[in-house]
Design a binder for these strands. Structure first.
Lengths: 120, 120
DNA sequence: GATTTATTTCGCTAAATAGTTAAATATTCG
DNA sequence: CGAATATTTAACTATTTAGCGAAATAAATC
């Protein structure tokens, strides 16, 4: 078995690997906001912040809608969920007494959606 | 309230944002392996793969122990768990009927360690 | 002890990223 | 319409990252 490692997931992790972008996501989780409001906490030029926003949009983490001359940004949950699920696969690895996933992968739980060979 | 965004987390997400490194983590979840074995699936020079391993080690995701001339790599769960937990904070954002976290943040659950202003 | 195997470090190049300032595009307001 | 506001795009520079081949280190084997 092998976990999916889509370009989308890669882009999501890349988008998350920056403090400005992580903080922006945290802020947007509290509700939509205009670009200027989002940029305020950072000592960045507007153009510099705009680029971070582009990275977040390219990853599908943020969408924008226009409200007059302001661009209102909203957080999109799907990519976060996908990243969460990818990492969640390794839950057994860190949460249990297992040193690695072997035991899990050979368990009923680990086999339930992969090796349905019992019926063949 | 504001989620923690440590340099460690940043490094973890950066380490995850590459297909070679993601696949290597997936492989290591099945159990420890030597560098050469890990490198095999990729068309990379040994030096090239070694650098990816350095990134994973710098993020604390992989540790090595020596077995003769072979370097045995093991996956370390802590950084994965930290990333999982950071993303898990937004679970309410994607899993529920909420458009954003406001409702959660104003709930008992959301208030339990943040705005204890009821007593002021 | 010379050779082979496993891996890293070094020195380099090419490409991607993060930041800047200046100019461009809309939109609102007087 | 002209000035101000909000934001992006363009052009550029500096830094980081990803890759390579060659050399270095270390252990195993003959």
């Amino acid at each position: 078995m092998m976990q999916e490692m889509s370009p989308d997931l890669i882009r999501t992790f890349a988008a998350l690997s920056d403090p400005v972008r992580m903080a922006t996501i945290a802020r947007l989780a509290e509700g939509p906001a205009a670009v200027g409001e989002l940029a305020e906490p950072f000592s960045l030029s507007p153009a510099g912040f705009s680029k971070h926003l582009q990275v977040l949009q390219a990853a599908g983490l943020v969408t924008k809608k226009l409200d007059g001359r302001r661009h209102i940004c909203s957080l999109q949950p799907e990519p976060l969920k996908a990243a969460y699920d990818w990492l969640g696969f390794y839950q057994n690895f860190w949460s249990g007494t297992l040193d690695h996933l072997e035991a899990f992968l050979e368990s009923d739980q680990g086999n339930q959606d992969s090796d349905k060979k019992t019926g063949l």
